[in-house]
Computed example of a mutant assay.
Amino acid sequence: MLHKHLLPLLFLLLLRLPVAAQMYSTTDPFAHTFSIVARDPATGEMAVAVQSHWFSVGTSVSWAEAGVGVVATQSFTNKSFGLRGLALLKSGKSAQQALDELLSDDEGREVRQVAILDNQGRVATHTGKKCVDMAGHQQGNQFSVQANMMLNATVWPAMAKAYEQNAKLPLAERVLAALDAAQAVGGDIRGRQSAALLVVRGTVTAGPWVDRLVDLRVDDSAAPLPELRRLLSLHRAYEHMNAGDLAVEKNDMPKAIQEYQAAEKMFPQNLEMKYWHAITLVNKQQVPAALALLRPIFKQEPNWRTLTERLPKVGLLTVTDAELKQILGLK
């Protein structure tokens, strides 16, 4: 038996011993999930989309850079694969070369699941032998679907089929169709909690701030995919709002009205969309039509009336004093 005074020393020595073949870091999440990486051959846009029964899955699994590619790193997630994978693609390596290099010195490769797509549409996918069943992946023309810890083995084939059958949709809606198909056949055996969608341009523009086309996340929800689809629809509506604002900048009021009406039609209960449509009508000297829109807005939220009073000062509302008085006096 060891002397009692030697026990503390032995404990300290054990703490200093290296741990062999550590599979994952305690800082990395266990993002068991299903995902898709894809490129639209027509536009060059690239997307990565994911759903999981794990909090804020989009901050761990999905990575993308315009003109470079996209990465999905999941199962026992190695988050460094995201930034490192993109850097390897940016250096000129293909998707397969990047994946091979990431896995080459990773002691936890057998519990990893990784998919990489480059800006030419080449895909590389790895599903480690120790990923939790059901686990697997399937590649197609410029896309890959992958899943682990699924209820059954029909998940990733269903994703591939849905993606291929929805070729006429924009890329964002198309990858969401693949996620919906996965959930419809069982999805994650644990249920669902979060989802994310990233879409980037195929080539870099002079304005990198516009190269990330869609960046949406649902971090915690009982129904993350329906919520993600709602957010994407709202994103599309605000694309019309942004186009309307741009038309106002260019003094193209007919175009502005057209864009604001398109946004309002998509989300008729959104007061902001109605409001800026109304303000554009005023600036177009269509005051009676604007009053009809503004009356219920002011009644529902009086702060819009206060905002209207401040707009002439900055040139966003061009009215006579009499017209402004008429607008502010709406009951």
Rank of each mutant, 00 (worst) to 15 (best):
A256H: 11
I327N: 04
A87M: 14
Q139M: 14
L246F: 08
S80T: 11
R84Q: 10
W304N: 02
L294N: 09
Q300R: 07
L179C: 01
W209G: 12
H53M: 12
R16M: 04
T77M: 02
T77Q: 00
V204A: 15
V319G: 05
E107V: 14
L231C: 12
L103V: 06
L225R: 01
L179T: 02
N251L: 14
V214G: 04
V123H: 08
R201C: 10
A262M: 06
N119I: 02
A153Q: 07
P302C: 11
Q165N: 12
S80R: 14
S35M: 04
D105A: 15
G67E: 03
V19Y: 06
K4L: 13
E45R: 13
L294P: 06
V61D: 00
L14F: 00
G121K: 11
A42W: 12
P18Q: 08
V48G: 03
D321K: 10
K90P: 03
L197M: 10
W304A: 04
E227M: 07
L213M: 15
N251T: 13
M253V: 12
M253A: 10
G44I: 00
L179D: 01
R39W: 01
V200T: 01
S56M: 13
I116C: 07
N242W: 06
G58T: 07
K313Y: 12
L169N: 03
I257Y: 01
A38I: 04
H3N: 08
L7C: 13
I36G: 02
P288C: 09
A47G: 07
T33H: 05
A290M: 10
D245Q: 13
Q51N: 12
M273K: 09
N251V: 10
A206L: 12
A167N: 08
R230L: 14
L88D: 05
S144F: 05
K331R: 12
F30L: 14
